[in-house]
Amino acid sequence: MNIFRLAGDMTHLASVLVLLLKIHTIKSCAGVSLKTQELYVIVFATRYLDIFTSFVSIYNSLMKLIFLGSSFSIVWYMRYHKAVHRTYDREQDTFRHWFLMLPCILLALLIHEKFTFFEVMWTFSLYLEAVAILPQLVLLQRTRNIDNLTGQYIFLLGGYRGFYILNWIYRYFTEPHYVHWITWISGLVQTLLYADFFYYYFLSWKNNKKLQLPA
């Protein structure tokens, strides 16, 4: 564990907490994409299949449980909690899951390190996580109405990805045999998807104005 990895995990945790705070206390999920949240459930469910069979540390297992539990509860809130569900931008959040999942399934079947069930599912989760934010970014672009919490949620998620890249660079130079092309390339793609959002986020922050995306 290095400082970049820890910072990445903590920003990831913070992003989930910000989203839960918005949904649980304000009872609103306006501007939040249910499609993206459902994709995250699939990402965590397929990545942490080994949660009971391979033990790394208490920290790892605990974080896995937190990410699984929080993503499930966010989806539950958005689908079944009456007050929260009313605030969901259903008409705008039209991205098709299969449009993202199918290419990721095919890619995981073609490009992986080992052709075993667990390994292909794990690789699929990496590919899917890289693009899971797309419905959320499309929703933002469409509604263009971004409250502070939604903006902070996406900013923290992007920050988590940025820290993970620093973590990989650090590990590459400090640990022998630490080469993971699949993880790195999908992680890099994922981080690049945030670039546009980050640009406007910093612009609004610099000018001390409310975040607004161009049409």
């Binding site: 790394v56 540390s57 790892n60 630490y178 993971h180 993880t183």
Partner: peptide, 10 residues
């Protein structure tokens, strides 16, 4: 054995 250390990340 092959290094599987990417698996210790989240």
């Amino acid at each position: 054995p092959k290094d599987r250390s990417a698996k210790d990340e989240l």
